[in-house]
Amino acid sequence: MTLTRRARELVIVATLLAVPVLFLRANLAATEHLNVVDRAILRVSAPLQSGLTGLARGVGNVWTRYIALVHLREDNARLVDENARLRAELVTAQNGAVRTADLEKLLGLRGSLQFDTLSARVIAVETSAFFRVVRVRLDRGEADVKPGMAVLASAGVVGRVQRVFGPYCDVLLAADPKSSIDVVVGRTGGRGVLKGIAGSDRYRTRIEYLERKDEAAEGDLVVTSGLGGNFPRDLPVGKIIKVDKRGFGLYQNAEVQPVVDFGKVRDVLVVVPRESQPIGPLPEPPAGQGAGGDRR
């Protein structure tokens, strides 16, 4: 390779590498912006992800049934199989009951909220461990959903919509370091900002800017404050598992275990605030189940 050609290649490589640098500078803060090409690729990909997920679930079901129906030659084998099949059915029924209960809770939550919600189903989960985003399929189109809207599971807060493309959207999990949600400690009323913590072993979050004088303790329930405009008040977020008062200063940190198991979320609701109806408090929950009932 001649020197000129090598120099020319170096210039081209340097120029090519400058392109993502420029893109990164422009997009580092705002990841929700999608251009026409991005939308097109994501709109093509999301149905494929949805189809693949459905296919894998179907194959899993067929496999379970096959295992339960082979070895039918002798009575003993038949009885063993029947037992296995009944056990499998019991597991399926139990799973169905759990899912039904989950959906019932979602329906109950939907009924108790003072604003519109859209149901959605999770079709794909984070492709990079460094960025915690799940993809959901909405039951309506992008005209109804906008970035920033709250996403809830039956147990509590999942995160917020990061970007929307057609009938799909990406949800930034509350456990992502980019996520910040205004919260209060239910027992004391102390306010803080819930942020995600990157970690490989589990989904973790922590409350920052929680005033040192607030006596937060392990086991305290953390709920949304309703401030900030995206999340309704008093939605469960997590439970405090560790309080850190080390050092000096005005604030303390508290590690929070999310109430939602993000790895198992299958169905969610997207909160769609009405123009004329700002997000407000939830109705008073039944005794003993209050999200923030004992607030000081």
């Binding site: 392109v19 990164l24 990841t31 990909s45 492709t127 990079s128 460094f130 960025f131 970007r163």
Partner: peptide, 20 residues
């Protein structure tokens, strides 16, 4: 760069990050 663009798009990371 194209592979990085796709990875960014799927992961929800800022555009240009994984491309770089």
């Amino acid at each position: 760069l194209v592979l990085g663009y796709l990875a960014d798009l799927f992961a929800g990371s800022p555009k240009g990050l994984q491309a770089l």
